[in-house]
Write a protein that binds this DNA or RNA. Structure first.
Lengths: 259, 259
DNA sequence: CCTGATAGTTCAATATAATGAACCAAGTTC
DNA sequence: GAACTTGGTTCATTATATTGAACTATCAGG
């Protein structure tokens, strides 16, 4: 997607950057890629790609199929697992929503903030198709998502500026907020309302309600959201769901030791 | 754990190797690590570690806590998720065992082969403690696990030699098989029996039964196992569970399109 | 308050990895 | 079947990242 050119100081470590780019590239595709495609699409010298792919395969970062195409390997799995196990968030999520029949068969997601993106760490996908199927590991720009807004709203304004001022993300739909000023207005409305709303900003026709989950230190550590189609979203239903959502977020926060 | 010194040709890409080592190191620990610890334990030059950690944090591979310690970052999550979503294995596993009350509250695991290791991709952990809690992303040497043996048994002998002849893994317990010849004898017994057994080879006091899952091409793509404590494992129970396990493996194989 | 030790940062020299060009293999088209 | 295209491999050169050493900051103890 981007390749911010190490504006700050420090070493460049180009091999590592390239490797990360390859893994991201493969994770974006739904099929496997040949060495030539990778070389072309990522615009690297042929021999560089060659050596790198070989090394990455040897390390288990990549898997070479019999046909000679490449797939993401098994090694990163444990890193991702470690990231998830570092918090009780996912466990708390699963436990809580296993017992909430009123919210069953809804699309509910939990994310954490990573730079200007939210990363999905737990999801229950409803049977009703939304145009998006949420999966752990997915990322979306925080300003266009309900969870992202819920999380951003808990930050100091200076912090928001630090994260988003350098580059506001490109819009995903024609409803996506366009700049920092719009976002701040939206966050203010959210404060008055009690939960955040993403109305078609991520995906045309999808509405999401979001609320933050706090840990024992009172820091917002995750965003909780539920998603539905525009046609399901009557004003009354949304108010009801918004209440249930903030309750759920409160319950999860208490589970994590928040006051 | 190991750092096979690129015996084959190709570029070394030391920065990448170092980064992978750091991520592995952090994934092995249950707490976060300071820059100095990483530098020391991984025996890198101070300034190298400094630059690398900085770059890795910037890329989202690492997360720097307020205290200055490092944790695995969010970026690898999507790679792991992509690896899992590349097959229907995990979905098939969850669907199948959601409907099997006879096997409920058992510790059941599914792995794939990655070099000489098995990598756990799906797990249900029983309430009874086994001394190990299986988690996706975990890896263990294939010759000491029931799933690993089940998978190795489906390979040509030449393939087994290619994988294990260079270096047979170090034993985990005093029951762990010691060499390739022992392993091959064990695989022969398994063929006669219909499922594989790990009797305390992974963990003292834990017994696992394993069977392979085949895909539509007839290739063994995953190993399925159930684990119990030695005291739970009467001969009769094991035979019963072994039968159920092979049934489950067959059902999963059919779900994946195997004949 | 001073001293010593430990952690973190900077920078220039050099060992090292990235790369362009040439080479080989395999498959396609006319 | 010959010429062409495309994908994959090798290797010497050079640009560049790694690293040792010097430096600063922070902290604990006497």
């Amino acid at each position: 997607m981007d390749q911010k050119s190490a504006a700050s100081g420090g070493a460049s470590v180009p091999a590592l950057r390239r490797a990360v780019a390859i893994l991201d590239y493969l994770s974006d595709r739904s099929d496997d890629a040949t060495a030539a495609q990778i070389t072309r699409d990522l615009a690297m010298p042929k021999s560089t790609a060659h050596g790198l792919l070989q090394a990455m395969e040897e390390m288990g970062l990549l898997r070479r199929m019999p046909a000679g195409t490449y797939l993401v390997g098994a090694r990163p799995l444990r890193w991702g697992a470690n990231f998830l196990s570092r918090s009780d968030l996912v466990d708390a999520f699963k436990q809580y929503f296993a017992t909430q029949s009123a919210l069953s068969d809804l699309t509910i997601t939990m994310t954490v903030l990573d730079g200007a993106d939210v990363v999905y760490i737990a999801c229950t996908n409803s049977a009703q198709p939304l145009g998006v199927t949420f999966r752990p590991g997915m990322r979306l720009p925080a300003p266009f998502t309900a969870t992202g807004k819920a999380l951003l709203a808990t930050l100091e304004e200076s912090e928001i500026d630090r994260i988003l001022a350098p580059a506001f993300p490109a819009p995903l739909t024609r409803h996506s907020l366009r700049n920092l000023a719009d976002l701040k207005r939206d966050l203010a409305r959210q404060a008055a309302r009690g939960f955040s709303i993403d109305d078609g900003e991520t995906r045309e026709g999808m509405i999401c309600l979001g609320a933050p989950v706090f840990n024992h230190e009172g820091r917002a550590v995750a965003g909780l959201a539920l998603s539905l189609t525009r046609s399901e979203a009557s004003a009354g239903r949304m108010l009801d769901l918004g209440t249930r959502l903030t309750e759920a977020a409160g319950a999860l926060s208490r589970k994590l030791g928040a006051a």
